[in-house]
Amino acid sequence: MAKQHAPATLRNRAAIADVLARELPTQGAVLEIAAGTGEHAVFFAGHFPALRWQPSDPSAEALASIAAYREDYAGRNLAAPLMLDAAAPESWPIEQADAVVCINMVHISPWEATLGLFAGAARVLGASGGPLVLYGPYIEAGVETAPSNLDFDASLKSRNPAWGLRRLEDLDRVASEHGFERSSRYEMPANNLTLVYRKRSP
């Protein structure tokens, strides 16, 4: 069966949608990077009918799952999924977006994917002022990391040494190199954060 299921999606989608309602533009195109199963894409497209939701992922299995969920979606604002590798921003098959959303990718991918994410987002957002919204667990200077997140970090690194929770200051540094600054930080359930980056004013 093409449809895949990520249990965390059902637990976090409402909380993420509350933040997106504050940060996304009222209309336009939202590019979702690493859309995974497609469950978030369907939920957010339904939640924000005035926005065109564009899911993407580098995995053929994920793309098939997204397409299967899309077949059951009654609205018209959910685009067909695109094959897109965050680590290769020069080959992203999209030229422009009004917002970029990336959920639970940064820690489950090599650091090169995060570097590419900021580079690609800088290009497709241009001077629109649109947000780059990241969700997931992070390590924050001066803030005690939850034991569950430390365990998760160790588990990720045991699966792939290139994975693991990233330090917030490292994300902020890469963001700055591409003209972004962090405009918002939201504490989320289960020791996660939502981070919002926007282009600095000229």
Rank of each mutant, 00 (worst) to 15 (best):
N77Y: 01
L78M: 05
L78N: 00
L78P: 06
A79H: 12
A79S: 07
A79M: 07
A80E: 11
M83A: 15
L84F: 10
D85C: 08
A87P: 12
A87F: 11
A88S: 11
A88C: 13
A88N: 11
P89T: 10
E90R: 10
E90K: 14
E90Y: 14
S91W: 05
S91A: 05
W92R: 03
W92F: 09
W92A: 09
W92P: 13
W92L: 02
W92M: 08
P93L: 11
P93S: 06
I94T: 03
I94Q: 03
E95S: 13
A97Q: 06
A97T: 10
A97L: 07
A97N: 05
D98K: 03
D98F: 11
D98G: 05
A99K: 11
A99R: 04
V100Y: 07
V101T: 09
V101G: 04
C102Y: 06
I103W: 14
I103C: 01
I103H: 04
N104K: 03
M105L: 15
V106K: 00
V106I: 15
H107K: 04
H107L: 01
H107T: 09
I108M: 02
I108R: 01
S109N: 06
S109H: 10
P110H: 10
P110D: 10
P110G: 15
W111S: 09
E112R: 15
E112T: 14
T114L: 07
L115D: 05
L115M: 10
L117N: 01
L117C: 09
L117P: 13
A119M: 02
G120P: 06
A121P: 11
A121V: 14
A121Y: 11
A121I: 12
A121H: 09
A122S: 15
